[in-house]
Every structure is written in C-alpha cells, then in structure tokens.
Design a binder for these strands. Sequence first.
DNA 1: AATGAATGAGCGTTCATTCAT
DNA 2: TATGAATGAACGCTCATTCAT
Lengths: 190, 190, 190, 190
Amino acid sequence: MARERKFNTVELFQEAKHLLLQHGYDGFTFSLLADRMEISRAALYKYYDNKENLITDFMIYEMEDFLHDLKEIDKLEGFEQQFDFLIDVIFKKTELHELIKAAQHVMDRTEAAFTNKEKLKKLPLDMYKFLQRFILLGKDEGKLKSHIPDGLIIGFILQTVAIPNHFGIPKAEWIHSIKEIITQGMFINK
Amino acid sequence: MARERKFNTVELFQEAKHLLLQHGYDGFTFSLLADRMEISRAALYKYYDNKENLITDFMIYEMEDFLHDLKEIDKLEGFEQQFDFLIDVIFKKTELHELIKAAQHVMDRTEAAFTNKEKLKKLPLDMYKFLQRFILLGKDEGKLKSHIPDGLIIGFILQTVAIPNHFGIPKAEWIHSIKEIITQGMFINK
Amino acid sequence: MARERKFNTVELFQEAKHLLLQHGYDGFTFSLLADRMEISRAALYKYYDNKENLITDFMIYEMEDFLHDLKEIDKLEGFEQQFDFLIDVIFKKTELHELIKAAQHVMDRTEAAFTNKEKLKKLPLDMYKFLQRFILLGKDEGKLKSHIPDGLIIGFILQTVAIPNHFGIPKAEWIHSIKEIITQGMFINK
Amino acid sequence: MARERKFNTVELFQEAKHLLLQHGYDGFTFSLLADRMEISRAALYKYYDNKENLITDFMIYEMEDFLHDLKEIDKLEGFEQQFDFLIDVIFKKTELHELIKAAQHVMDRTEAAFTNKEKLKKLPLDMYKFLQRFILLGKDEGKLKSHIPDGLIIGFILQTVAIPNHFGIPKAEWIHSIKEIITQGMFINK
DNA sequence: AATGAATGAGCGTTCATTCAT
DNA sequence: TATGAATGAACGCTCATTCAT
C-alpha cells in the first residue's frame, strides 16, 4: 500500500556499528549515517526519535547478539572446553568492547531514564552474571585459582581483546599466546 | 615592555588533561579551556593554530612525561624489581590510557598529516622499543617465557590498567591479583 | 465500490478548531490533526493541497457559521433587543476572535493570493456591512449616537470579547458591566 | 581592543519588535532577525543565549519603556486630565498589546522559570496596580461609576487600541469618538 | 600579547509536502 | 481512497576559527 522501504534495520545497524567504531558517540552523526545509507537524515527520524534512541537500540541488538552467541557455552562439557570457546567468541566480536565504551557515553551524559537505557545497563551485568557461572565451574573443578576475584577474571579475559597487535603477529599465534598467559602466566615456573 | 603572559604552558596542559579526560575529544572545546584558564579563546589561537594542534602538543608532552618516568626503570637492578616498578608506573598514570584513546580520534579523523602527528605515532613505538630491553632482560634471566612475542607481553601488561573494576575491589588487592595472573596465570598448575 | 471515507469534514473542522485554539497557527501541524483523526497525514493532502488551504477552508466555514448565527438578528424586533442578542452571540463565540488572529497569520505571511484568501478577506467586511443595517436601525430609532462612525461602533462591540478577565469576575457580571459601559459609558453623568 | 560592534541593542530591539509584530512568536526566527540586521545568526547568540531570552529581554525593555511613559500620569492634576493622558499614551504605543500576546506564548510554552520570565510576569501586574490608583482617583472624585469592576475598566481602556479601523477613519476623530463611548457610552441618554 | 566581535559550517530535530503502492 | 516511505528546507543552537582593534 505504501512505498517500498529503501533500507532495512540490519543494514542500518551495520552502518551504525561501522560509524560508531570509527567516530565514537559524539562523532557519530545522522548526516554521516544517512550519507552512507544514501537516504535523507529525515528518513532516519521516522524510525528513531533521536540519536540516543537509535544508538541504544543498536547497542541492545548488538549485545543481545553477543549474549546469544555466548550462551552456546552451556552446550559444552567441562571448564577447559568452555574456556577455549569463550576466548574464541570474544575474539570473534572484537568490536563489542569499543561499543560498550561508546555506550557509556550515552549513559553518562543524558539524564532521562528510558527503558532502553535500563535495558542497556542490565546487559553487561547479565553478561557478568552469566559468566560467573562459568567461573564457578572453573573454581569447582579446581582449575581456576579460587582466591582471585571473579570480576577480575572476567574483566581480564574480556580485556585481552583490546591489546594492540602493533607488530602484526599472526592471529592464531596471537590468540594462542594470550591463552597461555591468561592460564599459565608469562613467567616461567620454577 | 611586552605585556606579561597570562598563562603558562604547564597550567594549560593541566587543564587540557582534565577536560580531555572529563569530556573526551569531541567534548573538549576551546571555550571550556579558555574559561578555566580565565583567558579568551582567541588568546589560545596565538599559541595553537587549531584544536588538533593543541591536543597533539599536549599529548606529546604527556607521553614524554610518561616515558621520562618509565626510564627510571633502568636504575633498578634485576628483572623482577623492574617488573614491579613497571606495573606501579602504569597504575600511577592510569589516565594515559584514556588519553591515548582520545589521541586516536585525532589521528583517525583528520586528514592533514602534521609533524605533530608523526611524532605522536612514533611515541608508542619508542615506548615499545624501550620496553623491549626490559623484556629481553626478563628472557635472558630466564624469568619470562621466551616463546611469547615481545609485543604481546608489553601490550598485555599495559592493557591491564584498562580492566574495569566493576565490583570495586580494593586497589592493593586488585593490583596484586593482576600481577599474579600476569606472572603465573589464573589456572592452577598441576 | 469505493472505500468508505474515513473522515468527515465536520469532524475535521472540529479538531482543526481545537488545535488552532490550543497551538496557534504555527503550532498547528498536520501530524497533530492526523493523529487526532486517526488517519494518515497523507490522507489530509487528498482533500487539502496544503496547510494554508486547510486552514482557510476551515476559517471560511467558521465565519460563515458565525454569520449564519448572526443573521438571526433580523428576526428580532427593535434595536435594543437586537443589541442584547448581538452581545450574546459574540460572547457565545468567543473563540472566533482567536481564530481571526490566526487567520491574519495566513494572510500576512504567505505570498500566493488564492481565491480562499480573497473570500476570507471579504467575510469580515460582509459582517460589517450586515451589522451596518443594525447600526442604522439604532440610529433611526434615536438610540445610537449618530455622530459616532458606524465602523467604530461595530468594532467596539466586537472587540469587547477580547478584554482579558484577569481577575476572574463572574461571566454574568462581566457581560452586564460591559453592556453598561458600551451603552452608558463608565463616567457618571452629571 | 576588540573589533567594533556591527549593531547595537536599540537597533536590535527595533527590528525584533518589527518581526514579532509581523510574525508572532513562532514566526519570529533568528534567521529573519539576522538577515534584517545584516549580521550572522551566530552573532546574535553572543548576546542572547537563546530565542526565549532575546524575546523576553526585548519585552522587558519595551514594557518598562511603556511603564516609564505611563508614570508621567502622576504629574497631572485631576482625574479627567489623567484620563486623556492615558488614552494618548496607549494610542502612542499601539503595538504593546500585540507584543503582550506574543509574550504569553513564551510564558505558556516553556517550563523553566527564569528571572526574565518572573519579571515579565510581574510587569503587567505592575501596570494594573499602577492604573488602579488612577481608577481609585476617578471613583473618589465621583467621576467613574463605582460599581464597575476596576479590572474591567482598565481592560476596557487598554483594549480599545485593538479595534480595527477598517474604514480608515482619521486618527483624531477615531480617538475622540472612542473617548466618548468609553466615558458616555454609545447610547443616547434620555 | 590579548581580546571581543563576527562568521560559516555543521548538528539534532521538526514539518510540510510528495511519491509509489 | 488511503497509506507508509521519503525528502528538503528550515529552525534553534554550538563551535572552531578569523578579524580588527
């Protein structure tokens, strides 16, 4: 009955991700996005009331996607297998980290407490809680040192993704070495 | 007979750092800076042709300052002492990390290739090269695993500072645990 | 076999009046109107080429409605009865005044000279001319001072409706006092 | 020390008045004003933080100007002289009425309670209070009918200025007739 | 050396209007 | 007939930057 849409949400989120990673929250503009999608800025406002909404909508989509991938972890038996899987998932979604940074901008700057923001606040916590089960398993199985705080273990693992590979070491070697440091440390045991 | 200068560079960099950390690159404005220094925006333009220049100048200053601190490492005997020192320096200058993020904005976004940016690009590499001597020492002393790439070791250490302490674990415990993971890993050795 | 029309003109004018009074000319938008009528904005464009047309159409309808009411005046015998009737009609349609204000916006601001606007310009004059018969009667009957210009008498009466009742004097008393001033003045006759 | 200003406040208020009268609050835009003054929109923002501020500033200036003129009334002896003076002042500042209408827009629409708005709210009340002294005098001297509410008397007088002179009756005659109606009414006394 | 004045470009947002189904 | 999709122009506002004193 109406005209056919010139773009779909998936495409929009793709471009939004690209721009958000490249320019950050403030550098992300409707002009930029509209230009890339070859639509008018106004068109975007048909679907998102404002910049904040667009970005939080996208963030939620992205985080849920990550969580979804992550939840596959439960299908694996034993801590060590799960650990390997976790590292892989994290490195598959390298960008999420950057996005979370951008997300914080949204939260810090605007007062209004929308449902979107509530959701967004909950998602990282969900993730932490979810991963805590995994940590627990590791500690139960006697694999993980029990005296190291859970939050640090999780944070540590998640953060490795952000280590800059300045010398272009091949990905496989890179990840392998990271796993080794995380598990056994970089020091030689005597 | 010239009028007395109303501001000195040290104060300027101090305020710039404060604002950059508080508002990020885009949120950093000449108005804000001029207001805090109680001079006019126009005055800033006498010393810095544009925002980019001001920020890169400051970045260089900050990085050199960090490098300067870092170089004290050579005064210490033995790898393990140096390692402890390194962690301490890094955690003393936590903000540098944030600043480097802001710096990337400058580099990524603006086209013009100034000497300033060239310098800025080189500094992290300088730092890496400098730390490589430290890594070498660790490997020579048989403390550091020799098969792990130097770049990863350095990156890993530097990155720990960015792990978010979501659960507010006390700083001393936090750093201690981080050291343990880095050196011995989070897995229990059988 | 045509689809049933989703809106009728009467409802449209009702809602238009409501919105025009509430938001003024500039605050009146097609979105607002379409929302209230539960149709799409586009649908309105089937009937009215543009905002201006819609509003002038409505204005004409409203004014003619007022004129229609007003013409009942002829059914009354004698000037004094007609005078009372006139005041009542005016106060019954207090909003018309506001609407006329809004109407002026249309006339002043937009260049294009449509038939609608011509009509709209003529209506107040029609009203004036019509009321002149009433003034004439008053003067003939020796009730109205003959040396006061007709236009002023009419204007004066019509304008009273716009006097702001800042202190919330009860309507009956208010109107009564107005009538007294109009007829006998506010000064005490010696 | 700095560049010479391209415009002064008086000129600005003049143009603002013009535009406000012609277009009303919503129709008044910074573009329009800047164009007329041949400066950039941005320049206006150096002096007025936002549209609301500019307009309220101007309103206050205008109202205070009117009040200032009005207060000369006290220098005249006797109610009748004061009455004549009042009518003259009002007709000299015909536009004020329109401006007050526009002012109401500002008040109605924006929530924030600035000092400017407080002032603006008080000014009409000041005027009313001030005129009440004049009304009191008239009633004391036995010139004004004491049973007509003060608010109506004041409102009535102020409103006459808005009667549209559709037939272009000469100003002197117009004002003279208005005075007669106000004081003696339009009816012939028997 | 320092400043207030001024500007142009850009941003987020809204709205009247047009298009294609 | 009616609609959702899309757009361009404009608005309020901010900011980096330049100018003239």
